[in-house]
Design a protein around this nucleic acid. Structure first.
Lengths: 343, 343
DNA sequence: CTGAAAGCGCTAACAG
DNA sequence: CTGTTAGCGCTTTCAG
């Protein structure tokens, strides 16, 4: 690796001059000398040593991202959002992927045993002198992994911290549930079956809550009998579909696309036309919504925006040199497709 | 940020001793002194400054990853593979995501204009003193982004370099196509419709080639009339399905799952039972294969393994201090599901 | 067992 | 316009 010293030697100037020229300081050297320095730098494939530079400057111009698992569908999009915001603001990102899902599948309730991955990630990033950190969860839940020292901006994306001592950014599930309710009601539906997620899920609870609010506002009584608790899986909703479709309902709101697809499959197998005999809403707006015809209506969580907002929060804390502790609920977008009919 | 100097001051020893103790050098200090040093380090939330450390040691123990786009479905899994291998071998990874797909959608033929993202990524990583680099493409094609200096191990994952001057690792499409052919033939199929990708795709060409080989080996004549060139999209295959299904065939091999789903949709709408009236094979083994009932048979490219192999290649080059230039074709796995019937 | 000293590659005064 | 100097935080002889 060529260094400034090499360039200085070759051009007969001091490292200081090389540094000044390469960093574009005006009037650091005569035009011809400057030109020569650039040429030699090129020739030698000079690349500044970021370790030396950052050490000297005592700042990294970077923020860290701790992901629970990069291979879970929501995570790359959130990271992308963080990245796009940082790029616009001259910051770099350093990703530390804990690979929790890969290692433990869904079984990683935040036990001390698992938390060493968090501690490692945190140490690594702090050692790399990141000026702030975004923690990207793979689903909305309370995270007990907390930074062990309080002096670095820390933001939770798509999840929230236990105790609430830090900022967090996540989708506004309640309002999304409300909008799904409103949309279905506006299409004339009054008797709507619901396939919720597990009772333990705040996601699911919030969506249900918003959905009930929409019913109430329209003087429609919520019917617990047509509400079933699934486990996010296709299988669970397939079974529930059988029960629901024997009841007196005109629409089904399944709280993720996977469960919506389970309903869809049931309908296909029983000659029930989705988008005619029954209306269907999913959630997450994953690529699978387009795989059926008619396509499944769904709710898109603002993943990219969650990333951007988290980054904004971190950078704001860095720039203002104050810690912020707020929760941000970002609006989801409702995508109405032909799986829903007006009746 | 606390430094070793702070710890030295507080414990009344020199930085050298602190360094030795913290790095576990045997006999660097008396037990009691060492204990004290650890305690104070803890108290001060000491984290080694990686810039200083790496600068001094003149190595980073890390490899870089340049991704074309982290949000494209194959990429996180490949990155995960690289990461898992590196973790096992004490190396860190630094990801630089060019966000090409985000910026340009599919329109990023490697023009000079786009190549500045590559140059940037390369510079950034080299500045960060990575000891090797993996380039992760988002689909198999010839990449004209080449490192501008030849002294760093560079491996192309899920793509291959123009001119072939560097190692690459990608799925063995030809053999996968062959196995799909074999599998269908073994199930008694003789007249098999094919929905290829675009003629320009090496992916598609290789798969077709392997498929034809399987036919030949079984003395079955390949029928170009039942072969159609799609564009990877659902729409294209939906239209092709109409033509194919009016022909005398018993099975369809669509060269990605998306196109298989287009066929599936056509079948559903026309009361043709997949897995009974017609057999169906897809490719990629994405999560969508399970969304239909019966599920779509498909071919899984070895994404994780491609990542691991690429990492292995880079680390081997680093350790041996020699550049390797080989191509590795990794076997895909064929997943036979109920979309295929034995006839 | 402990410390002094040198230096990794770079930047930022400051002096000439 | 150009160079000298000091020092960022750390590791590593080498000497005591």
């Amino acid at each position: 690796m060529a260094t400034m010293k090499d360039i200085a030697l070759r051009t007969g100037v001091s490292v200081a001059t090389v540094s000044n020229v390469l960093n574009g300081k005006p009037g650091a050297a005569s035009d011809s000398k400057a030109q020569e320095i650039f040429t030699i730098a090129q020739e030698l494939h000079y690349h500044p040593n970021s370790f030396a530079k950052n050490l000297k400057l005592r700042r990294s111009n970077s923020i860290g991202i701790i992901t629970e698992d990069l291979t879970v569908f929501n995570t790359p999009e959130i990271v992308d959002g963080i990245e796009s915001y940082c790029e616009e603001h001259g910051y770099e990102i350093i990703v530390d992927n804990m690979r929790l899902f890969k290692r433990y599948r869904n079984d990683f309730t935040d036990t001390p045993q698992h938390s060493r991955y968090f501690e490692n990630a945190l140490s690594t990033l702090v050692s790399k002198q990141v000026e702030g950190i975004v923690y990207v969860g793979y689903h909305c839940r309370e995270i007990s992994f907390l930074p062990t020292f309080g002096d670095i901006p820390f933001v939770y994306a798509y999840c929230f911290p236990k105790g609430g001592g830090f900022s967090s950014v996540y989708p506004d599930d309640e309002n999304a549930g409300y909008h799904v309710g409103q949309t279905l009601i506006r299409c004339g539906h009054r008797k709507i079956g619901v396939i919720v997620g597990p009772v333990t899920s705040i996601h699911a609870q919030s969506r249900l809550c918003g959905f009930q609010r929409a019913l109430l506002e329209n003087q429609i009584l919520y019917n617990p009998e047509t509400t079933f608790w699934g486990d996010w899986s296709r299988n669970s909703s397939y079974e529930i579909a059988e029960k629901l479709l024997s009841m007196d309902i005109t629409a089904i709101f399944a709280m993720n696309d996977l469960m919506a697809s389970g309903v869809y499959t049931y309908c296909l197998e029983h000659n029930i036309a989705v988008g005619r005999d029954i209306s269907l809403f999913g959630y997450d707006n994953r690529d699978i919504v387009d795989l059926y015809s008619p396509a499944i209506s769904s709710v898109a969580p603002p993943l990219h925006e969650i990333g951007r907002k988290s980054a904004e929060l971190v950078l704001r804390q860095i720039q203002s040199n104050t810690l912020i502790n707020e929760r941000f609920l970002l609006p989801c977008s409702v995508h109405l497709r032909d799986s829903v009919v007006r009746i």
